[in-house]
Design a protein around this nucleic acid. Structure first.
Lengths: 304, 304
DNA sequence: GTGCGGCAATTCAAATATGAATATCAAGCC
DNA sequence: GGCTTGATATTCATATTTGAATTGCCGCAC
């Protein structure tokens, strides 16, 4: 009869490619993994990995078994979700996965009240542009730019996040303030990578024609924002981030360059957990009550 | 992070209803299970079972987790099949699941050559009227009376096993030898349970009219055979078993009372195992070469 | 070539898990 | 009522598992 724990270890080895790497991930020592792998192989009477100096190389049988072990892991994750979902206590931790454009600034600032209100809960903000897998418990709640496709996830669309063209006062003093879009090509232009743009609702005419003349590009919205703030040039900037930046000036009569909807997502089972539910509701309220800030309406006008 | 081995133990407890029963099944001690359950429950922070004096009673969460644990077990079984399928050595064990009518006598006798030929293989004959689940590795090869319905099983029909009416010479000397079926009601009659008959190809007219007047009934073909051999009366008796029973006489001109087809079944992956393949082929040859004996042709005539 | 870094295997003392024996309790049965 | 049976929990000596340290091995860079 196989030892299921060995299978867990086996999967980690298979996914990480070496005993040492798997050991680090599992928080056990490398000799332990070495011995358990040996034991597993002796148990089944066949080799799962060829040990090389560079690490482990899977055998055919190993590949086939890996498939089933992954499947088992999915069930383990499902159980973990069940367990968390049954947790009615307002203590523990909540992991929020979030894109950088919101997570690094706005989200953190707005969580102050929550932290006061629920002192027992550890709030964990995971800023990642990669999509955390809620089904694998990589996060409890996610703020996404699109409707999630996986089943078993609950999601609601909250605010629409608009980006306008902004520049710093210092830049505009030096280079002048353009009045029409066509004047942009005379200016230093700050632009996200195309991979970012394709995730948004963008009017290509407003952006793509300029992509060749860009002065600064990045896949990091924070880096782009810093570039705008530092007077590198004119760039798309999140309206909600511009709210408390008096040095920034919005251009072209509040033109919206591109916009994304923000989806609040959680796993159906996780939402039954009291603390996750609390965070889910808190974020939902917080987002919708800042609807105008995200859309760039009230604050942007006030700044003009 | 959950300990997968705990989940295996948890499943066993869930399926067997008590720590003690699960411990026996898993070949570990009851205190071990008690401790590991406690550890698992502390790990997830919730109760899985309510401990009662009568055993364990599952909580709602336990029920939900059980479902996933079963799912994991299916994957483990799949891996075990993979492993066995990859085992090319001619050592280890082969478990044959077989109905009593063949397993207890004929099969065992005919395995002699195999055991000589493959000294490294442990042959394990599991006589059961319940159907062992090949997918769950409860057996490697099965002799069945019907075509298996599960996918992933390979099966071939081998011989047809006929049953005739037999009686011992001593009984016939005392009570006389009936010449026609209708005289049977004057005799002591030995009959299988109806549940056996319904599994066979039986002409009801030959048997059911007599069921009320039976002297001896059993669900065990061996018990029925012993009854016939002991001179209890006239009964259906497997032709192949009668081959080396000179004291038995077949009645009514080799009339076939009922018959069953014998299917040789294995799992598709298991057939890649050298030792199981060897047994599969051996049994296939052995069965077909004894076709006449099963049908009751040559030996029965010789005995007349 | 020499040294460095990453890898798996080995060694040995310490932490951990295990099983046999036992205690304790509840229910069923004379 | 007392006895038996079968369940979980507890205790303690023992066996197993683990991790830190170490060794040995290879490839790579300088």
């Amino acid at each position: 009869m196989l030892d299921w724990e060995d299978l867990k270890y086996f999967l980690a080895m298979a996914e990480h490619g070496s005993l040492s790497a798997a050991a680090r991930k599992l928080n056990v020592s490398q000799p332990t993994l070495s011995r358990r792998l040996t034991a597993l192989e002796e148990n089944i009477g066949a080799e799962l990995f060829a040990r090389t100096r560079a690490g482990l190389e899977m055998t055919l049988l190993g590949e086939q078994m890996r498939h089933h072990a992954r499947h088992m892991q999915d069930d383990v994750h499902a159980m973990e979700r069940l367990v968390t979902g049954h947790d009615s206590s307002l203590s523990g931790s909540v992991m929020i996965s979030c894109i950088e454009a919101i997570g690094a600034m706005w989200l953190v600032q707005k969580l102050g009240n929550f932290i006061e209100q629920y002192p027992g809960i550890t709030v964990d903000v995971k800023v990642d542009n990669a999509v955390s897998d809620l089904l694998r418990r990589e996060a409890d709640i996610a703020l996404r730019m699109f409707r999630p496709v996986q089943n078993d996830l609950v999601a609601k669309r909250t605010v629409t996040m608009n980006y306008g063209y902004y520049a710093s006062k210092s830049y505009l003093e030096t280079r002048g303030k353009p009045q029409a879009l066509k004047e942009l090509k005379e200016h230093n232009f700050i632009l996200p990578h195309d991979e970012i743009l394709t995730q948004t609702k963008t009017d290509p005419r407003k952006v793509y024609s300029l992509s060749r003349s860009a002065t600064f590009r990045s896949n990091s919205m924070m880096a782009l924002a810093t570039a705008v703030e530092s007077g590198f040039g004119i760039g798309a900037y999140s309206c909600v981030m511009a709210v408390d930046k008096p040095d920034l000036v919005r251009l072209f009569d509040d033109l919206t360059v591109f916009s994304t909807d923000i989806w609040l997502v959680s796993h159906a089972e996780l939402r039954r957990s009291a603390r996750i539910r609390a965070m889910y509701d808190y974020l939902g309220d917080m987002l919708t009550s800042h609807n105008d800030a995200f859309a760039g309406r009230l604050p942007a006008r006030a700044a003009e």
